Simulated assay, not measured.
Amino acid sequence: MGGSRRHLRANLRYLRALVRRFRTTLVLGLALFGGGPLLFDWRYVGPAGERISFGEALHHVYFLLYGQPSLPYVHDWVIELLNVVIPPVGIALVADGVVRFAYLFFARHKNDKEWIEVVTETMKGHVVVCGAGRVGYRVVTQLREMGKDIVVVEKREDAAFVSALRDERVPLLIDDTRSPLCLPRTNVKHASAIVCATDDDLANLNIALDARKLNPSIRVVIRLFDEDLSGKVRDTFKAEALSSSSLAAPAMALAALDPRIVHSFHLGKHLMVVSLFEAREGLPGMSISEVRDKFGGLALVLQRGTDEQLHPVGEEVIRPGDVLTIQASYQEYCRLRAHAGEAEPPIWSHQDLPVWPGHRQVG
């Protein structure tokens, strides 16, 4: 229900943006099909002195667009002027305005540059993601789960996730980021953040500089392969520069030491880890708050059978067989593993199945 309402609001915002963009066309159309028939109705007198209705006048104006007047010729300079002016003005109006308006409204799936420019006019506080590769696509997926409006810019039509983004109806601009019109088409002036996630360090830096020039207050996140460069950019450019190697290194190192760690990251000088704990020894009988107070472990999820609790309450008592997702510093994690009788990481058997120290493998 919420998704359909959001989709309806997006359509209404898009329609308002189209009306604002084509306001000159709409005014001319109103003058042509509203004012034109009124002038004919007021001024036209047939050869036998007969008057015409507004409907007949509108019919005449419509067929004048195709050079086929439906009323007999009369000697009146206002009528003659209208008969001469309406056909070229009407053709230009229909060709340039009405057809383009209808195309943009009914063919939004085409994802052409003009459509993207109109769509982004409806956005404020959105995030611009540059790069439709694996990293860019994951960033987009995460931001969409958080309910953010997103515009994606990609240089190549055949990039890895272009088709997937289009299937998910994410606004996608195929353009060269070095073009001076590229970022303005994404309405970067009103964006809250830009993520530079292409596979080219220089291109990412150029995008960041151009974005800051257009929007000095925009938050900038840059993906860089050069770790030394990322540090310099972070200090001097006041942007969040992330090196792929620095992000991956802690996870890879800890995975090599202990496969029970599912995630790791640095929080200042502290190495934080996230791991799954199956309550077998030590943990059963303890409450969630006791695990936190004694070992510094923050329980993120408690799974009991098919029931899963996010952020379990502190008074919850852990039962045998419960599975907890716990976040802690690496030192606190090691103490908690020792308390659970699992100080050493599992030993991999010839069947590639983990054998926990102190426990026999079944089968």
Rank of each mutant, 00 (worst) to 15 (best):
S264H: 01
H263C: 11
S275Y: 01
S275R: 02
L254G: 03
H263R: 13
L271Q: 14
M272F: 08
D258Y: 06
P259F: 02
L254H: 01
R260W: 00
F265N: 06
A279V: 04
G268N: 09
A255M: 10
S243C: 13
A256V: 03
G268H: 06
S264F: 00
L276Y: 14
S246A: 14
M252H: 04
S246K: 11
S264K: 05
M252A: 14
I261A: 05
M272C: 12
L267P: 01
H263D: 14
I261S: 04
F265H: 11
L257Y: 12
V274Q: 04
L257E: 13
K269G: 15
L247F: 01
H266I: 07
S243Y: 00
V274C: 07
L267T: 09
P259R: 10
S245C: 03
A248E: 12
H263E: 13
L276C: 09
P259L: 10
S245E: 09
S275E: 06
S275P: 07
S264G: 06
L271S: 13
G268Y: 00
A248H: 05
A255H: 12
S244K: 09
V262C: 08
L254M: 10
H266R: 12
R260V: 03
I261R: 01
S275K: 04
S264Y: 00
A279Y: 00
F277P: 02
G268F: 03
E278Y: 00
S246Y: 08
F265K: 05
A248V: 12
L254K: 02
F277V: 07
R260Y: 02
A279L: 05
L271V: 11
A255Q: 11
I261L: 09
